[in-house]
Every structure is written in C-alpha cells, then in structure tokens.
Nucleic acid binder design. Structure first.
Length: 791
DNA sequence: TCGCGCCCTGTTTTT
DNA sequence: CAGGGCGCGA
C-alpha cells in the first residue's frame, strides 16, 4: 500500500485549532481534499463505507452488519483524519473491547498511514485507557499513581476476607457471588451509596451495599483498583473534577468506538462525558451481534444512539463481503425472529454457494465423530485446516470434540482457554514481583508468603492480619513489627525475618539490577523455581517453561511496573497461529473471526438456547442466544454446518435432548437436512427409553448420588434447603463478634490482662504498643497491645 | 502445619 | 466429572 503521497500531519497545524468543529465538511477541508491526488486508502470503499469514513464531524453511528468491513471503515476513518491533517494522532481516542482488536487496529492503521499509528497513544481498550487516565490523576480519587490492578482472583480473596471479618458464612453467601453483584453494579456505574434497597437484598440479607462500601474502602487502603473501577473511578474523577474532564474533552477531538453494542452503562457514561466537548463521536457496531448482555452490555446503548447524541448521522453497512448467499440468508432469516432491533438487510453479490446443512446425531459422541469425519474428508481434499472452526456454546462441549480429534490425529487448537496470566505459576511469580515493586501489596504477599512451603500457615497469617488491621498498616510492615515481639512462634519468626529481608534486598535491587535479571533472581532466591523443579508431577515442566516465558516477555518492557500493568490488562496466552490446525472455541470467542468452514454442534434446547440464559433473562435472554446463533452462522465464508444430538451427557449423566428451536427458525430454501447414516442405527427411541430407565435403576445403588440427581433435574431455581442452618454455627459466630469488638485501651505496668493465646498475665512494662507481660502459664513474653484485653 | 481424602457443588459466555 | 473446601489424622 503506497502512502507516500500524503504528508505526515505533524507539520501541519491541525485546522481544527482555529476552526470550531461545526460544519460537516468545511470549505478548507474540501479544498484540501481536492488538492491532493485521489487518496488511495479511499479507493475500493463502497459508497456507504466511504460515507462512514468521510463524515468526520458530529456524532455518527455506523451500523455494520457481519462481514461488512467494519474494521476497515474504522481504520480508514482514522487514517483519513490523520492524513487530512484534521487532527494529530494523539488527539484521537479510539476504544475497543479487546486487546486483540486494538492491536489489529493499530497494525492496519499503520499499514494505511505509515508509522504514525505508533503515535496513537489513545488507541486501546476501555480498560487500558481508563487506567492511563486514572494513573495521571490517581490522587483525586484516593489512589496513588502506582495503584495495582486486581484480577478476579484477588478480588474474590479480598471479598472473602471481608465476609469473614463480618461473620458472614461464605458458604451460604459465596464471595464469588458478591463479586458478581458488585461487578454488575460497577457495570452500571452504581456507587455504594446509590445501591437501591431492593438490590442490596440480593446478597446476605440486605448487607450487600454495606459490603460493597467496605470493599471499596479496602481497595483504597490497598491502593488497588479492580476492573470495574478502571471505568467507574474515571467517571467519578471526571464528575468531581470538571477541569480535568474539560481537559480531556479538549484533547479528544475525535472519538471512535468499536463494537458499540457491547458497551455497558458505565462505558456509555464514560464516552458521553468525553464526547460532550466536541461531539465528534463515531460508534461502530451491530445490534445483532450484541452477545455480552450477561456481563452488563446494554443493547439499548446502540438502539438509543440517535436519541443520546442529537443530530447523529447513521450509516448502514449492508454489503457483506464474507459469506455466500445461502449462509447470509440463513443467518438473516434467523435473526429476523428477534424484536427490538434496528434492522438491516445484508446482501451479497457472491454466488449462492452451498446450503447450510443441518445434521442430527444420536448422541454427542457421534456428533463429534461426524465432525471429525467431515474434517478428515476436507483434509484429504486438500482443504486448509486453519480455515476450519468448531464453535460451541459452552466450553464443556469442547472436550468431546477434542477427544475425537486426538484419536484421529487431527491437529487443533483451542482458542480462549485459560489465559497465560491466569495460570497458577504465573500468578505466583507475579505476586512476588508485585511485592518487590510495592511492599504494600497485601494480596500478593498473602498469596506467596507460604509458597513455596515455609512452614507458615493460617495461624501465623491470622496473627499478622490482626496486627495489620489494628495498626492500619500493610501486612509486610505489620510483620516487621511483629518480628520485634514474641507474638509469633520462634520458627515462624525466623522464617518471616528471612523472607522480609529477601524482599528488602530485592526491592533495593530494583534500582541496580536490570528488571529481567531481578525477576530471575527473585524466582531463584525465593525457592520458587526450585519448588517446581522438585515437583514430580507431569505438568511441572510446563510450568517452568511458562515461568521462563514470563521472564522472556519481561524483556519487552522498560521496567517491572509497566510489565505488571501489561500483564494484568493485556497479557494473553502466546498463540502460535498460522499453522494448519482446526480451531475450537466458544461462540463468544469467535466474534470478529471468520473461517471457510464452520461447525456448529450442540443446537439443542437447554444447551443452545442455554437454559440458564432463558431462566435468568427471559425473552431478552432468548434473543441474545439467537444473536449468538447469528454470530455463529455468519462466521462462515463458504460452509456452515449446524448439528444437534438426541442425547448428551450433562454432569456425567446422559440426558435426552430436543433439537434447538433455532433450527425450526431457519429458512427451508437455504438449508438442507443431511442424513447422518449412523444416526439411528442404535435403535433410536427404544434405546432412549432404555437409557433413561437404566439410568435410574443403575443409580439406585448409589443412594446419595441418585437423590442428588433427582433433586438436580427439576430444581433450577434457588433450592432453599429446609432448616439448612446448623445449630452450632451461631454460637461460634457470636463468640467471634464479642471478641473482635473488645476495646483496646492502653495498659500500664501492673495491669492484669488476658491474651488470646497465652492466657492471663500481668503487665510488666510498656514500650509504645509493645508490652512485656508475665503470663501466669506461658511465662514472660513481648506482645503487642492489640492482642491483649483487660482481664 | 501438612497432606490426604471425602463431599459437595456447579457448569455460559470475560475486560 | 472435576475442582474446591473442609475435616481429619499424622
């Protein structure tokens, strides 16, 4: 792509400086366009695409159906703004949802306008841009600029602590659930004080809002932000500091948003605040591909765009460049069953191609066999396996397909499996590095203080915690103080002293050693690598390999902090693409991708549409499932193959399943039902009944299991177990309450005191908060006063 | 304090 | 079926 004909915009003074952005296409702009040779990047765009690219001023909604060149429009638009000198790259805010999308955009812009894209500091995900803004003004929201970003794991551990401290049974009220509740509030930019009474009841008998508040306070103490905060706290920053907001409104002359249908309320508010300055916001999306409602996305955002941004233009991209006519017609017909959509008519000029096939199988194993067989045939015809994908509704479906592929020796790759940074060893290593960078990172310290095993346990941690909470200091600092006392047992004390000394040394080396070396040193000297080397389990080697990979990827960053940030926000499993492998992934993970051939197994009621989506979201859930189906079909360029099985194993039990209602919604003229020869060879119905009978009889032997299975089937809602509370629990809880609420006054020599661990004793001397106490049974000990109460 | 084994639960999708 | 949590025994 030649692009030498336009000047880098750095030399031009962007005209918008002097001309308020009002006229859609100013005279000077038109003159500038006329003056330059036909812009090569504009050629090849169809008229609608071109309109989407060239309508620069004012709000614009681009409704881009599947395969209509959405990314191309976005990137060309940015290139256009830059190439015409309308704005500097640094004045364009371009947000995406995934890092992959951001990366791809950067690359494509780079190809269009040369290296200028490197100078686009504000192209990234909502979260990364939010972080960037937040770091600059952290003190305004009660954080320091080096705040840590908590992942889900940290989040849950933190919530668990809070629940425990509040004596809330985390069995009945799992921290995980509270995390979801809080997340859903953050998705809607609801702060603790704005939680409605009704919603507060969604957890722990109405204490949810209170817990949320404590959680937020705790985050501030820890100098940490969770994913939701990266947006919500930015919104708060903007709202409470109009000058800061104004600054960004000025800066961002042009705002572009990818996948607008996936934005949640918080993201919408965030965007609206920023767009209020210049009103140049261009959102690209497809309401038919909104599939993240469950995590707070609001289709409404895109449906209401024209209302939210008055005077907005709308461009529809309806020319599909990806799929054959049969595939397109099938998808369009299916999605037409949804109400409440903006409506698009996708068209293609390609030849009709093959019809979409629908294939039934006796059970899920046979379904997997059919997929395997079809792919083997394609392979022997010379098809490129990297152009074949199996798209499933839930990851649990992958296993059977994988098993089959392994048997056949078909190369495959699973996309979107556990992420690199979610692996145990990576998290541990990261925790070490986090502690080195910030000794106040309690969650990290807690994670690794006994990894590898050092003989420190829960008892020790509790002591450390109790002191830390009392003194209001981070764990490591608390530990330092405790080392001066006899609060801890000698062995633990020595161990902790060593550990702290290590961290002190590593922290000092932060200045002197290159960060990659430091990371290696830390992992080495902490005994962490040794731990895995000594491990005889089969995956230990892989873990060591991952650790090496971690250190290797460190090289790409200037220092540890920037690396840590990258990992928490961006890091993905290294995927070696481009070799010929079949891709297996969830439908969600498939959005934005395309393949020649797509297999869509598991189109059965309950699985797809997913029962839970139906139960929880009703009709909205059904429509989202249908959109998911639409996304699935439209991934295919040439061949889409829908499949269902009559029996599927769920939790290890075989269940009879009915074909998905979506299958009946497909247009007969564009699909064909293929007979699977082996489908009924097992005897169909009779076998089905037999199976069910066998299932029940077989299980009678296993009474608890059978009872559970029986309870499982009809029970979809909340099973309130009758009299589920254990009588003994309350007493214990009450005891803890009494203990933690005891007053902690200051003591003087001669006072009779009681220590939780050492029992009654007499104070001998005091030094600050350290007391020397002669215990009746345990002898003379130095302890801190927070562990002691008057006897 | 650690490690083992039992039991229970839940299993959509994720920045 | 699997992963996590908890209780028990060493």
């Amino acid at each position: 792509m030649p692009h030498s004909h336009f000047d880098p915009p750095y030399n031009d003074s962007p005209s918008a400086d002097s001309a308020p952005a009002s006229s859609p296409l100013s005279l000077s702009e038109r003159a500038r366009q006329a003056a330059r040779p036909a812009d090569s990047y504009l050629t090849g765009l169809n008229p609608e695409q071109r309109r989407a690219v060239e309508t620069i001023e004012g709000p614009l909604l681009v409704l881009a159906g599947a395969g209509t060149g959405k990314t191309r429009v976005l990137t060309t638009r940015i290139a256009h703004i830059i190439a015409t000198g309308t704005a500097f790259p640094s004045q364009i805010l371009a947000v995406t949802f995934t890092n992959k999308a951001a990366r791809e955009m950067k690359e494509r812009i780079g190809r269009l306008v040369g290296s200028v894209a490197e100078g686009m500091p504000w192209l990234g995900t909502f979260h990364s841009i939010g972080t960037k803004i937040l770091r600059r003004h952290a003190e305004l929201v009660g954080l320091r600029s080096d705040f840590t970003i908590l992942d889900t794991d940290d989040q849950i551990r933190l919530l668990k602590q809070i629940l425990r401290a509040e004596n809330i049974d985390d069995k009945r009220w799992p921290a995980r659930q509270l995390a979801n509740v809080i997340d859903s509030w953050k998705n809607r930019a609801i702060t603790p004080d704005r939680v409605s009474a009704g919603e507060a009841h969604s957890f722990a008998q109405g204490r949810a809002a209170e817990l949320y508040k404590m959680y937020q306070e705790r985050l501030k103490v820890l100098n940490a932000a969770d994913f939701g905060d990266l947006l919500v706290e930015t919104i708060r920053l903007f709202r409470e500091n109009p000058d800061v907001l104004a600054n960004y409104q000025q800066r961002f002359r042009y705002i572009l948003v990818d996948e607008y249908q996936d934005t949640n309320v918080a993201q919408y508010l965030w965007l609206r605040l920023l767009a209020q300055g210049r009103h140049n916001i261009c959102c690209v999306g497809d309401d038919d591909q909104s599939i993240y409602g469950w995590r707070g996305a609001e289709v409404d955002n895109i449906l209401r765009f024209e209302h939210d941004f008055p005077g907005a233009g709308v461009v529809r991209l309806e020319r599909n460049y990806r799929s054959t006519a049969h595939i397109l017609a099938t998808a369009s017909h299916l999605i037409a069953h949804n109400e409440g959509r903006l409506g698009k008519t996708l068209r293609t000029e390609d030849d009709p191609g093959q019809r979409v096939t629908i294939t039934g199988a006796w059970d899920s194993e046979e379904e997997a066999r059919q997929i395997g067989e079809a792919i083997e045939n394609a392979q022997s015809r010379g098809d490129d396996l990297s152009q074949v994908a199996v798209l499933v509704r839930i990851s649990a479906q992958m296993r059977e397909v994988e098993d089959r592929f392994v048997q056949l020796g078909l190369p495959y790759r699973v996309i979107g499996g556990p992420r690199f940074y979610e692996r145990l060893e990576i998290r541990d290593a990261m925790a070490y590095l986090r502690c080195v960078v910030s000794q106040a990172d309690d969650l990290a310290f807690e994670r690794i203080f006994n990894t590898p095993k050092r003989g420190l346990g829960d008892a020790t941690l509790q002591t450390m915690h109790a002191y830390a909470r009392h003194a209001g200091v981070p764990l490591m600092q608390a530990t330092r103080a405790l080392l001066e006392t006899e609060e801890l047992k000698p062995r633990q004390r020595t161990t902790l002293r060593d550990l702290i000394a290590n961290f002190d040394r590593w922290s000092r080396q932060l200045e002197t050693l290159p960060h990659t070396e430091l990371a290696e040193t830390v992992l080495e000297e902490s005994g962490y690598t040794a731990m895995w080397q000594a491990d005889r389990s089969p995956d230990a080697a892989g873990r060591l390999e991952n650790l090496k990979e971690l250190v290797r990827s460190l090289e790409e960053f200037p220092d540890l902090p920037s690396f840590l940030e990258h990992v928490s926000l961006v890091m993905e499993a290294a995927e070696s693409d481009s070799d010929a492998r079949v891709s297996i992934m969830t439908l969600h993970a498939a959005k934005g991708l395309e393949f020649d051939t797509v297999f869509l197994p598991g189109w059965e009621e309950g699985l797809f549409p997913n029962q839970r989506a139906l139960d929880e979201q009703g009709r909205a859930g059904l429509e989202e499932e249908r959109r998911l189906a639409y996304v699935g079909i439209t991934r295919a360029r040439k061949s889409a193959r829908i499949m269902f099985a009559s029996n599927r194993r769920i939790h290890g039990l075989w269940n009879a399943t009915a074909p998905s209602r979506f299958i009946d919604e497909l247009p007969e003229a564009h699909v064909e039902v293929t007979e699977a020869p082996a489908a009924y060879s097992y005897g169909g119905y009779a076998r089905n009944r037999f199976d069910q009978a066998a299932g029940s009889f077989g299980s009678t032997y296993d009474t608890p299991g059978w009872t559970r299975a029986r309870q499982n089937t009809p029970n979809t809602g909340h099973a309130t177990s009758p009299g589920g509370r254990r009588g003994g629990n309350r007493v214990i809880e009450g005891e803890i309450v009494a203990r933690s609420s005891g007053p902690s006054s200051t003591f003087k020599p001669g006072d009779r005191v009681f220590h939780q661990k050492f029992g009654p004793g007499t104070v001998e001397s005091c030094e600050g908060n350290k007391l020397a106490i002669e215990f009746d049974k345990a002898g003379r000990k130095t302890v801190v006063d927070s562990f002691v109460k008057p006897a």
